[in-house]
Nucleic acid binder design. Structure first.
Lengths: 159, 159
DNA sequence: TGATAAAATGTAGTTGACTACACTAATATA
DNA sequence: TATATTAGTGTAGTCAACTACATTTTATCA
């Protein structure tokens, strides 16, 4: 890796670095799916896994589980439905809701996807020497959900 | 923190989590600057620090040091110049280049900014029990620059 | 030198996240 | 019951990153 000024900046540049790593991985993932001739996107993984576990969910149920905004979820599921991976039907009891489930195409393709997802998981896992990184990530998430960056900084400022 | 399905997904969802954390911090930082009546944006920190260190830089020199795309840098420096924090002048030797430096306004405001940046750094630092997180981050960056997610996954797939 | 390639900047358009607003349906309440 | 509030979905517009393309200037080299 060539010289990177951002890494000199310590903790205050951490958001920049996290975003760069994330974008590099997503970009590379998109590229990989294309190379493998798979017509799916990196983020669809979240929805596939959700509907494997919960079978049928509405938009708001997905936003609650993923902590995404609802427009983001709508955008994801619309694209997946347009590509034939999801089916939606109005909820029987509440006509405001659309219930989404995996399509037949999804079920028949997922075994192939699983191979790639397993390989991807192993590949990423090898980036870490132990699993303390995931633990630290969770710790950061919890702490920031209790008191965000602004609050923490203003608190330090007032000392 | 409420239930978060993404955290069940392990290593393959790490990009999603990094991005969420990054966006939460940037969002909160923007909000903080606003609350404090400071007319700056979180990412401007990178440019302030660059020009403190290097005094005068062109767009491409900044992209090389930050590993950002050049349109991103252009967008940043244009906004900063519009807000009076940067001054630019054509390079004497190469008329394609614009050389950027900190303005008088920047120099006179930075001491106040430093207080906030120091507080922010301390606040973020306290999210971590030790500094292994930054080390791990650097290790990931280096590894991914040598072989990206796609390559790693395809490599595992072929085993 | 003249032609070609490379470099620096800039613009346009894309993407995926977001907030804000709009609409409709369901629920709560006076 | 009628009205007000809340909830679910959808749309529009913003934002910061990106790629691709365009333009101009500089550098290379036949």
């Amino acid at each position: 890796m060539q010289y990177d000024f951002v890494n000199e900046l310590g903790y205050l540049a951490i958001a920049t670095r996290l975003k760069r790593i994330s974008e590099a991985m997503v970009h590379s993932g998109r590229d990989m799916y294309k190379s493998l001739g798979m017509d799916i996107e990196p983020n669809w993984y979240l929805i596939f896994r959700l509907l494997q576990k919960y079978d049928q969910l509405s938009v708001m149920e997905m936003t609650a589980k993923l902590h995404f905004s609802h427009p983001s979820v709508i955008s994801l599921v619309n694209k997946m439905e347009a590509n034939g991976y999801l089916e939606s039907a109005p909820d029987k009891k509440d006509s405001r809701k659309r219930q989404f489930r995996l399509s037949e195409k999804a079920h028949s393709n997922i075994p192939e996807f699983e191979k790639v997802w397993t390989a991807g998981t192993i590949g990423v896992e090898k980036l870490f020497t132990d699993n303390s990184f995931l633990d630290q990530l969770e710790s950061i998430e919890i702490q920031l959900s209790q008191s965000d960056f602004k609050e923490r900084t203003l608190n330090e400022l007032s000392k």
